[in-house]
Each structure stands twice: as structure tokens, then as C-alpha cells.
């Protein structure tokens, strides 16, 4: 990638620390809240580094348009959308090709987890709004969207958790930030259901040897397992808070 940009800014310093002070295998700070919107049937919010993403789930409800309804299962519809102010230069609110592709891969990452066959002819509509983007938005979106689905009371085989790993200046690193994603040599997002060892999203761009690929996948899976704990705590936290309110 742009050699000039790398000369300007070293992404990994002499002690092996990254541009934001993290170690190669360290995640960005993560904060997740469940049940943040009152109108949606389920909702969640995540902050991962500077990423700020919100999701709302409506359904199972009547399918619109009706002809899309499936006779044997629910239709999962997903819209990944970025706010115009979420990036450096204003993004047009019309859906870009990238957003259409991400809506598809995020939906396909979540679908294996949901018992869609419980709700034939209905649709489950998932809306993801990226309020601020900072690298790894699809991963953070999947992690949080699976919580929004759980919050809507939709039966699932497992929570889906996602995390990226990649290569920056020849070193393998976990959970890439925006600068690392843009200037680095490879980015590999993975979505995973830990209890059934199922990879539900796998993408990559960049350049990796087979050996590096295997290491990067394992690094991303380790990241997933760490985030899985935070994810479960966030879901529990909502009900602990409810219980406290009830007891008062």
C-alpha cells in the first residue's frame, strides 16, 4: 500500500506497541449496552475504540413487501447503514455498494444462528446504524446485532461474535483500527459461534501466505472468544438491572 503514508507515520513502534498504544494481540476497549431503544423489539449499542454503532430489531412481524414472505421460515432482512457524519468526509446517505455488500454478509453471518423456522411467513428486520466509524465496523456490528436479536427474544443457537485480525508492517495484529486497516497489508474479519465452532463470516483483503492466514484466523478467533465474554455480560446486565428495579 502507499509507501509514502507509511514513511510519514510508523504504525508499530520499536517496542512493538501500536499507534494507539496497544499490544499486537490486544483488543480496543469495548462497551456494550442492550435494550437502549424503547420502540424497537430489541436493540443494542456498542463502542469499540472510536466505533459507535446502534442496532434495532423489529419482528417477527408481517413481511413487507408481502411477496417476499417465505412459507417455511422467517425472512431476515438487514440494513447496514452509515450516518453521513460517521466518517471524515460526509458520506452520502444513499446506500453505497459497500453498504449493500455489508448488509448481505452481515445478514449471512447472523442467519445461521437464528431459528428462523419458528416464525414462517414473518420477517425479522434488523437495522444497523453506524454513528461513527473507526475500522472493524462490520465485526462490531455483528457482535452487537446478535445481542439486539437476543434482546428481541428471538431464539438463537448461540450469540454470533465477530472480530478482525490482520497484518500491519509485517506483524500480525488483532482488532485493526481505521489507520491500520487502510495502511496495513491485510484485514481479515471473522464471525463465529463459539459453542458450536461455526465460522459464519470470513472475508479478507490484502496479502497473506497460507501460514500467516492460519495464524491470523486463530488470532481473530481468540479475539472473538474474548469479546464473547463481554457480550454475554452485556446481555446479563440488562436483566440484572431489571431485577434490581423490580426488587426496589
Amino acid at each position: 500500500m502507499p509507501a509514502k503514508a507509511q514513511e510519514k507515520q510508523k504504525l508499530i513502534d520499536k517496542e512493538g506497541k501500536r499507534i494507539d498504544g496497544r499490544n499486537p494481540d490486544e483488543l480496543r476497549p469495548i462497551k456494550i449496552e442492550v435494550g437502549v431503544l424503547s420502540n424497537a423489539d430489541g436493540s443494542a449499542y456498542i463502542e469499540q475504540g472510536k466505533c459507535k454503532i446502534l442496532a434495532g430489531v423489529y419482528g417477527p412481524r408481517e413481511t413487507h413487501p408481502k411477496h417476499l414472505a417465505l412459507p417455511d421460515r422467517a425472512l431476515l432482512q438487514c440494513r447496514y447503514h452509515m450516518a453521513p457524519f460517521s466518517v471524515e468526509e460526509r458520506k452520502s446517505p444513499a446506500p453505497s455498494r459497500r453498504e449493500i455488500e455489508l448488509s448481505k454478509v452481515i445478514r449471512e453471518a447472523l442467519e445461521p444462528a437464528v431459528f428462523l423456522e419458528y416464525y414462517p411467513r414473518t420477517s425479522i428486520d434488523l437495522f444497523i446504524e453506524v454513528l461513527q466509524a473507526d475500522g472493524g465496523t462490520r465485526g462490531a456490528a455483528i457482535t452487537m446485532a446478535s445481542l439486539a436479536l437476543a434482546d428481541a427474544g428471538i431464539p438463537m443457537k448461540d450469540l454470533v461474535v465477530a472480530c478482525a485480525a490482520g497484518k500491519v508492517e509485517g506483524k500480525l495484529v488483532l482488532d485493526l483500527s481505521d489507520a491500520e486497516d487502510k495502511l496495513g497489508e491485510a484485514d481479515l474479519p471473522v464471525a463465529y459461534m463459539p459453542t458450536i465452532d461455526a465460522v459464519t463470516l470470513l472475508q479478507m483483503d490484502g496479502n497473506l501466505t497460507l501460514e500467516e492466514f492460519e495464524q491470523t484466523v486463530n488470532m481473530a478467533l481468540n479475539g472473538c472468544k474474548q469479546i464473547y465474554k463481554i457480550q454475554k455480560e452485556a446481555l446479563k446486565a440488562k436483566y440484572v438491572a431489571l431485577k434490581e428495579v423490580a426488587e426496589e
Binding site: L188, V199, L201, L202, Q203, M204, D205, N207, L208
Partner: peptide
């Protein structure tokens, strides 16, 4: 070397399959 990957479809893979 691998330069791009895309998973599609509503199913999943195990790590070993990948």
C-alpha cells in the same frame, strides 16, 4: 498467497474446513 476471501450463504464452516 491469499489476497481476498469471501464467505457467502446462510450456513457456516468449521475452522478446519477453512
Amino acid at each position: 498467497n491469499i489476497c481476498a476471501i469471501q464467505k457467502g450463504g446462510i450456513g457456516h464452516f468449521t475452522v478446519q474446513q477453512i
